[in-house]
Simulated scan of single mutants.
Amino acid sequence: MTSQTFDPTSLPEHDNVPGNAYAYCVRLTQPLFMQTGRMIAYYPAGGGQIRFEPLVATSMRGMVAQRFSSPLYSRDWVVATGQGHVLLGDRGYDINSYDLDDGNLTVRAANLLAFDASLELKESIIPGFLTLLGTGKFLASSSGPVIFVEPPVRVDPEALVGWADCPAPSLHFDAGWMGNFLGAARGALLGTRSGEERQYDFTGAGTVLLQSSERMIADPHQLRRLEGEVQGLPVGQLQHLQQVITSRLQQQQQ
């Protein structure tokens, strides 16, 4: 089996590695925000160096404070600086680049791979999502190729990658599911929800990004968010939450 061998002269400037949807090459000329653990190789230009600084210990605190406004996620991001080519990968998921032109895009945090320092990142009011504002390029991974649809549309939450220039979605529950789980007690206890029972409902103008799979990319930050919220619960609610967790664990082990 033979394959092409790449070097800085044959790598693309800003594109997927030829014939490989799972690896992307950035020609670094300005600061780039990227998730930790996503750099797989790099070529410094002209004998220089490329630096990867954690956001919590960077020498560019002023720029980071202006461009990255999400304390929940800041521990797992770095800013890359220097000149050269950087190769990125994300656990074998498809990687695509997108251009924002004075835009407003909200993307699932687990899917966001990297973005130009010309963009501004804020934490969305919807848990697990981040919002990018401004003009620049960003990279996102997905389980399978991404498709673009226009509202009005209802989508499976696990297939949703993000949405651009349209209002945030509302939740829509299937009428039959609501009848069977009156009061939502059984649904909350067993966690029996899927895209057929619960959907995100988009209205208005804009674009919705969907991955061609219901295999949602795991987001460890959701656990951090829950841990923070648990701190304020009284004993009775903690005991109920313990029952819910025990039931879910038993269901998963069956």
Rank of each mutant, 00 (worst) to 15 (best):
R186K: 15
Y24H: 09
S247I: 07
A21H: 10
L171K: 07
L105Y: 10
D15R: 04
A65R: 12
L238I: 06
L171F: 10
Q237F: 08
R75I: 03
D116P: 01
P71W: 01
G92E: 06
V208P: 03
E229W: 13
L121Q: 02
A114W: 13
N20G: 06
M1T: 09
V56Q: 11
V153W: 02
V208E: 05
N104Q: 12
H172D: 10
P127E: 08
W177A: 08
T36L: 12
D90N: 15
L241R: 09
L130G: 04
G136T: 00
Y24M: 05
D219V: 00
M178F: 12
L130S: 07
L226M: 12
T207Y: 03
D90K: 08
P151R: 05
A140R: 06
L112V: 05
I95C: 08
F6V: 00
F173W: 10
R193F: 15
S74T: 10
R38N: 09
Q30M: 09
G48N: 07
T29F: 04
E120I: 13
G47D: 07
I40C: 13
D156N: 12
V149P: 00
F173E: 10
Q66L: 13
A45P: 02
V149M: 08
L130V: 10
Q239M: 13
Y43E: 07
G92N: 07
P169H: 02
S212D: 09
L87I: 15
G89N: 08
H240P: 01
A185T: 14
F181P: 00
S141C: 14
E196W: 09
M1K: 10
A188V: 14
L121H: 00
S142F: 11
Q243I: 03
R186C: 03
N104L: 12
Q199D: 06
D15M: 01
G134T: 00
G206E: 05
F6S: 06
G47T: 08
A159G: 02
T207W: 05
V235M: 09
